[in-house]
Every structure is written in structure tokens, then in C-alpha cells.
């Protein structure tokens, strides 16, 4: 009895206390090998089972504590190392080798993020609309598109970086530039945008579409006037998630957007984002403290972005 109920908040909800007792008794009594031979007294004291439950409970809680503790430790570690270096000089407009300001990297990050979205959204959102609203059921093309976007989602960022270097930087002749970096990242976030948009569209009840058709609206008008507005929060949550990925990306940018530490004058100039800036500081090894301060800024930005996305997503599901 104890072993069943003491550790299981769910057990009380799903299996009424009154039920578990007699059933246990019966099964225990039916098994002649169980310790105590099935006499009434021994039911509350099954040392073997009790110990196992205790050990498993300890392991579960310890594993959870270790996992959550490790992740919290990382955040605390970065904050403790980085916050003392957060000085106004770190936000100077100009980067110099003495004052490794993160401001140019911050500006480049924003520019690159906007540019990536400008490229990725006009491709990803209509593609999702096609998948969710237009594509015939069971079409081979749909499964092919879905397979390819799953493949894209699994490709590691360094491979995107290599591709960007070969295609945008080299073959198209854009050189190390914000545009080449943004185009590379746009392909990288395309599957994420498509997936979240499609899910948001599918979450809109069919009754809304039928009502719109019934009022004489075509598929296009229904999509743009009824389905898209209703799906907007879900799409937004996906976009914000994509922004988080862009801001945290390094490997795909080093050989596409380059590592110049100044505010770019045009999209054809090279620039480094905050993540690349951090990596550059770590490989130079001279300004590690400023590197940690940059990590704090990056961490706050990324976790903030993801929190906003999660909050929006949560509001939809309600």
C-alpha cells in the first residue's frame, strides 16, 4: 500500500486508494513465492519491493536534479563571470583592439536577423500555406517536400556554412558579406518556419474555412482573410524561435558573413554577429572577460526571445 501511494501523485488520481489495497492483496496472496507466504501481516512489509522503489525514486530525483542543476549551473557560471565586465565602454559604437566593444556585433546581429527573415519568410510561409491549404491529400509532392524540409532541419550548421561559402560567397560572387550570411541562415531556418507555420494553419478549425466558403469567398480570400489572421500567433511564435536560432548561430556564419568587427555599411560588407564575436574573442584569448560579458548579453537575448515565443505559443493552446 505504502509503496504504491507514497511517491505517486498520479497514482492517487488514476487508481483510487480503495482499489489498490485488495488487488495487491490478491496478487500477493496468489504468489506463493512472495516473502511471507501471503499472510496478511507481510503485505505492508515487502522489504525487497520497498527497497527497489526507494532506490528508483532516489535515482529519478537525482537524475533530474543533476540535469536541471547542470543547466542552471551553466547560466549562473556565465552570469557570474560576465556581469562584472558589463561596462558602458563595451557598448561603444567603434570596435578597437583595446576596447573590444560588442556594439557593432549587436547591430550586425540585428541587421543579419532582419535580412534572414526577409529572405526566409516569403519562401517559408507560402510553402506552408500550400502544404496546409492547397496541396491535394496524399500527394507525392507533399511527402517529398516534407522529407526535404526534414532533411534540411537535420543538416548541421557547419555544412550550411560550407554550402554558403561555395554557393553564395564563391559561385554567386557575393564575397564575405552580411547578405551571404543572411541567405545561408535563411535556408537554415526555412524548415523551422515552414513547420511552425503549417502547424499553426492546421490548428485553425475547418469550420472557419467552410463558413468562409459558404459566404462565397474563394480559397485565396479564405486563406488570407480568415485562416492566416487566426494562425498569426502560431506563425509569430515560430518566427521568434527562428530568430533565436539565428542569433545563436556561429558555425554557418564564420565563412559566409565573415568576421569583420565593425558596423557594416552595406549588406555586401562583412560583419560578425554576437556569437561569432564571442568565438573570435575566445580564439584570440586576450579579452575573455569581455567574451563572458558578451555571453551574458547573448544569453539574455536568446532566452528572452525563446520565452516570448513560448508565451505566445502557450496563449494559443489555451
Amino acid at each position: 500500500m505504502n509503496a504504491v501511494t507514497d511517491t505517486a501523485p498520479r497514482a492517487t488520481a488514476t487508481a483510487p486508494r480503495g482499489m489498490t489495497g485488495p488487488i495487491r492483496q490478491a496478487s500477493s496472496a496468489a504468489a506463493p513465492l512472495s516473502p511471507g507466504g501471503g499472510t496478511g501481516e507481510s503485505l505492508n512489509a515487502r522489504p525487497h519491493g520497498q527497497t527497489r522503489e526507494h532506490i528508483l525514486r532516489f535515482l529519478t530525483w537525482a537524475g533530474a536534479a543533476l540535469a536541471i542543476g547542470a543547466l542552471l549551473y551553466i547560466v549562473a557560471f556565465i552570469l557570474i563571470r560576465g556581469v562584472p565586465y558589463l561596462k558602458p565602454s563595451l557598448f561603444a559604437w567603434e570596435y578597437t583592439s583595446d576596447n573590444v566593444s560588442l556594439m557593432p556585433a549587436l547591430v550586425s546581429t540585428i541587421v543579419l536577423t532582419v535580412l534572414s527573415l526577409v529572405i526566409a519568410l516569403p519562401l517559408g510561409v507560402p510553402a506552408a500555406i500550400w502544404l496546409a491549404e492547397y496541396a491535394p491529400r496524399g500527394s507525392r509532392l507533399v511527402s517529398l517536400v516534407r522529407m526535404m524540409s526534414d532533411t534540411l532541419a537535420g543538416i548541421p550548421s557547419i555544412v550550411y556554412g560550407l554550402f554558403g561559402l561555395l554557393f553564395f560567397v564563391g559561385w554567386l560572387g557575393w564575397g564575405f558579406s552580411v547578405l551571404a550570411g543572411a541567405a545561408t541562415l535563411a535556408i537554415m531556418i526555412l524548415p523551422l518556419t515552414m513547420r511552425s507555420t503549417e502547424e499553426a494553419l492546421r490548428a485553425v478549425p475547418d469550420g472557419w474555412r467552410e463558413a468562409a466558403f459558404g459566404l462565397g469567398a474563394g480559397r485565396l480570400r479564405t486563406t488570407f482573410r480568415v485562416v492566416l489572421p487566426a494562425a498569426m500567433p502560431g506563425i509569430l511564435a515560430g518566427v521568434i524561435l527562428a530568430v533565436g536560432r539565428i542569433v545563436g548561430e556561429t558555425a554557418a556564419l564564420i565563412y559566409t558573413a565573415g568576421t569583420v568587427a565593425q558596423v557594416p555599411g552595406s549588406p555586401m560588407e562583412s560583419a560578425r554577429t554576437l556569437s561569432v564575436h564571442m568565438y573570435a574573442l575566445s580564439s584570440e584569448g586576450l579579452h575573455l572577460g569581455e567574451g563572458y560579458a558578451t555571453a551574458v548579453v547573448l544569453l539574455v537575448v536568446v532566452i528572452g526571445i525563446n520565452a516570448v515565443s513560448a508565451a505566445i505559443a502557450k496563449r494559443i493552446t489555451r
Binding site: I74, F77, I78, T250, A251, S275, S282, A295, L299, I303
Partner: peptide, 23 residues
């Protein structure tokens, strides 16, 4: 805990790298 773990999934790899270098 649940939203916390989800948020931590978004920590950029460079940040993990900095942590690894020092810890």
C-alpha cells in the same frame, strides 16, 4: 522546471563553449 529546460535548449553553442573552457 519544464519551461526552464525548454528555454535552456536555446542556449547558443558558443556559450556552452565558453562554459566548457572555464569549467
Amino acid at each position: 522546471v519544464k519551461p526552464g529546460v525548454d528555454l535552456l535548449a536555446g542556449i547558443p553553442s558558443v556559450v556552452y563553449g565558453f562554459f566548457g573552457m572555464a569549467a
